[in-house]
């Protein structure tokens, strides 16, 4: 379904979007299997209608949104963002949504809420990976409040002008473009405001490798891969390699969030 969105010219200047085919057929979405092609093959099983997102925790207005309400909460924008996977590949994706801060403001969190946790859908009968992949479920991610409130952080309902396909995290996800892709939780059913840093899935699996922050950082490597370079998806093989930018190219906007923090310790 086509979404009524207006292009936001502030994002994506000079970026050439990755093809729709590649964006929707090369995915990491372990709920549907660990291979890149598993999500596009298996995600049709997920029932995305009806769908509700519960907002809970340290918040004045505990609410349950359905997708229609989320679609209408604020005007939808087309935003072209870089997307960088921790596996050292990257895409450029035209998302549809609005700043997550709009939703957060509408829920009015308490001053004690310092973090936001996102819980993804957990339905073993619709998501075969939940049975076959041995990691803690449901998928959980989190952001510090100021990261969640940053205008770049997008409550995402679509891509390429259309509703999100299931393999891309339908019906609603977040996109945090300066962090590795796994920080951008998909198919969200709960948004929880909390006092302490929430448990996050990859941090639970391998804390020495996947930190809570997981900002794109060419100077901090992961065990198997250097993060200094990345492979551009859809480019010819001899042109795939390109240097990775600090904060995935969003340093001007977000570096201030981490002032005074040692990013080698808070990776």
């Amino acid at each position: 379904t086509k979404l009524p969105a207006t292009p936001n010219p502030n994002y994506g200047k000079g970026l050439k979007p990755t093809s729709y085919q590649d964006v929707t057929h090369y995915n990491n979405f372990y709920e549907f299997g660990t291979s890149k092609s598993d999500p596009s093959e298996n995600a049709w099983r997920l029932k995305t209608e009806p769908w509700t997102v519960e907002v809970e925790g340290l918040v004045h207005k505990k609410k349950t949104f359905d997708i229609d309400q989320l679609m209408k909460l604020r005007p939808l924008e087309d935003r072209v963002y870089r997307f960088r996977c921790v596996e050292a590949w990257s895409m450029v994706i035209p998302w549809v949504g609005y700043s997550l801060s709009e939703l957060i403001k509408a829920c009015d969190p308490l001053s004690t809420a310092r973090y936001v946790q996102f819980i993804s859908v957990d339905r073993p009968n619709q998501e075969p990976g939940i049975m076959s992949v041995n990691i803690p479920w449901p998928y959980s991610e989190g952001l510090r409040m100021d990261e969640a409130m940053h205008p770049l952080t997008l409550l995402t309902l679509g891509l390429y002008g259309e509703a999100l396909p299931n393999q891309s995290g339908a019906p609603v996800r977040v996109i945090v473009p300066w962090k590795y892709g796994f920080k951008s939780a998909k198919s969200i059913v709960k948004i929880r405001f909390v006092k302490n840093q929430p448990p996050t899935t990859w941090n639970l699996i391998a804390p020495n490798e996947y930190g809570f922050y997981s900002n794109v950082n060419p100077n901090v490597d992961h065990t198997p891969w250097s993060q200094a370079r990345e492979r551009v998806i859809g480019a010819p093989i001899w042109k795939q390699l390109q240097p990775t930018q600090m904060f995935n190219g969003y340093a001007d906007e977000v570096a201030g969030l981490y002032k005074g923090m040692n990013l080698n310790t808070y990776y």
Binding site: Q21, D22, H25, Y26, K36, W89, R231, I233, G234, P236, I237, Q240, L241
Partner: peptide, 15 residues
């Protein structure tokens, strides 16, 4: 597959 441009979205990884 290389000549047919059929190495998938991430040809480096495929090879």
């Amino acid at each position: 597959a290389g000549f047919e441009n059929n190495l998938g979205p991430d040809p480096t990884h495929t090879v």
